[in-house]
Nucleic acid binder design. Structure first.
Lengths: 157, 157
DNA sequence: CGCTCATTATAAAACCTTTTTCAATACTAC
DNA sequence: GTAGTATTGAAAAAGGTTTTATAATGAGCG
């Protein structure tokens, strides 16, 4: 078995786990499992990007044109998922909320000031350096966030 | 003369330069120099953060409560400054524009989650590393911001 | 299956930010 | 000072996104 296949299996297992967590969550709150909610969770899972409610809705329309899911349902489901910590949202500036799945492992962001796309990265050297700076200044670090703004590869063409 | 005094003088000189550039710009376009425009430029200069039109307006209200500058004037002046490249704006996500003055020296922030105090710092290693990461990912860096959250020296006692 | 109530799509309403309108004001040149 | 015109604050309008109201639908349970 190749690594790719193994990863693929892992991914399915991971999604099944997520889905059953979601079902359990719904059940314990006397809420119902609907095709709309499943599709929203699945689309969120399949996407590696941070999505706005609108872009998520567009994605769903493309993938499931016959379902005709309303934007209000997307908003309602995202709020539900966020309230139960299955998705997290990021604020970029005073407004502009974007959602992503999971109790995230930490990462920093490259944000394109032209198209708004977000690329994630983690850099061990920066993480270490941050620890060191905090220590040197007598600061007990709890958290940090870093954003790099610029023009992404695609937009430079 | 100490370094601090020298920096202070430099800062005043820098602002005077900026102001006279602004005046020249206005004159050459048959526009008028008003107290509102001066206050907006000055407040932008004094702030080290990226500001939304709204937060800039709030800042001005605090600093000059008697002037009663309208939010529309803030928007108008920011557009004017941006058109003439004296300020740059960044998009955060699909929407949400933030402004900052053109030539600004960069620094990062340590923010105390207990007392709210902010310590500024610059670290060459982190700056270099950021450049490198941006380059590796085909990203043309324009700016970046980093915040470390935690408990400051004073508050730990 | 049939009952009950949560959920849905749709559309209207509520919200927010940004722009425009307009009469009053104030800067600049003379 | 005065004339001419850009600028201002206030309020209305425009342009978005997000939420709510509603009647119809559908999931879950016995």
């Amino acid at each position: 078995m190749s690594d790719i296949t193994t990863n693929f299996d892992d991914r399915i297992v991971e999604y099944e786990q997520l889905l059953s967590d979601f079902k359990a969550l719904l059940k314990s709150n006397s809420l119902k499992f609907t095709i709309q909610r499943e599709v929203i969770l699945e689309t969120l899972y399949d996407s590696d990007e941070h999505l706005t409610p609108e872009s998520l809705h567009n994605l769903i329309q493309e993938k499931f044109p016959d379902l005709n899911i309303g934007i209000a349902t997307v908003y309602r489901t995202l709020s539900l998922l966020e309230d139960s910590n299955m998705v997290t949202s990021l604020y970029f500036g005073a407004q502009g909320k974007k959602y992503e799945l999971g109790a995230k492992n930490h990462h920093d962001h490259l944000i394109c000031t032209n198209c708004g796309c977000i690329t994630e990265f983690v850099d061990e050297q920066i993480e270490e350096r941050q620890d060191k700076i905090a220590n040197e200044l007598g600061f007990k670090m709890q958290d940090h966030s870093m954003q790099i703004y610029g023009i992404c590869k695609n937009c430079r063409n």
